[in-house]
Amino acid sequence: MSATRWTAPGGAWIVTPAVAGDRFAKARESGAAVTLVDLEDSVAPQHKDLARERAADFFTTADPAGPLPGIRINSLLTLTGIRDLAALTDYPCRPPLVLLPKVESARDIEIAAAALDADGYAPQIWALIETPRAIDKAPSIVATPRLAGVLFGAADYAAITGAGRTWPALLHARSVLANSAAAAGIAAVDSPWFELGDTDGLRREAELARELGFTGKAAVHPSQVPVITEAFRPTDAELAQARAIVDARTHTGSSITSVRGQMVGAPFYAAAQALTDRTDHTP
Rank of each mutant, 00 (worst) to 15 (best):
A3L: 09
W6M: 11
G10D: 09
G11K: 06
G11P: 09
V15D: 00
A18C: 05
A18R: 03
A18L: 05
G21D: 00
G21C: 02
D22V: 00
F24K: 00
E29A: 00
S30D: 07
A32I: 08
D38C: 13
E40C: 10
D41N: 14
S42P: 09
Q46E: 15
D49T: 15
L50K: 11
A51K: 11
E53M: 12
F59C: 08
A62S: 11
P67W: 00
P69C: 07
G70E: 05
I71H: 06
L76N: 08
T78Q: 10
G81P: 10
A86K: 09
D90H: 13
C93D: 09
P96I: 11
L97C: 04
L100E: 11
V103I: 09
S105V: 04
A106N: 03
R107Q: 04
D108P: 00
I111P: 01
W126Q: 04
A127L: 00
A127K: 02
L128E: 02
L128R: 03
L128P: 00
I129A: 02
E130M: 02
T131W: 01
P132E: 00
P132L: 01
I135V: 12
I135F: 01
I135L: 08
K137V: 02
I141R: 06
A143L: 01
P145Y: 03
G149S: 08
L151C: 09
A154V: 07
A155E: 14
Y157R: 06
A159L: 15
G162K: 07
W167M: 13
R174F: 13
V176G: 04
N179E: 13
A183G: 14
G185R: 05
A187K: 13
A188K: 12
P192Y: 10
P192F: 11
P192D: 12
W193D: 14
W193I: 12
E195I: 10
G197F: 03
D198K: 11
T199M: 14
G201F: 10
G201Q: 08
R203P: 09
R204D: 15
E205F: 07
A206G: 13
E211Q: 15
G213Q: 11
T215C: 14
G216Q: 11
V220G: 10
P222Q: 07
V225H: 01
V227S: 10
E230V: 03
E230A: 14
A231I: 08
A237V: 04
L239Y: 05
L239M: 07
A240K: 02
Q241W: 12
A244L: 10
D247P: 01
T250D: 12
T252Y: 05
S255Y: 07
S258V: 14
V259W: 04
G265F: 02
A266W: 03
F268Y: 04
F268P: 00
A271P: 01
D280Q: 03
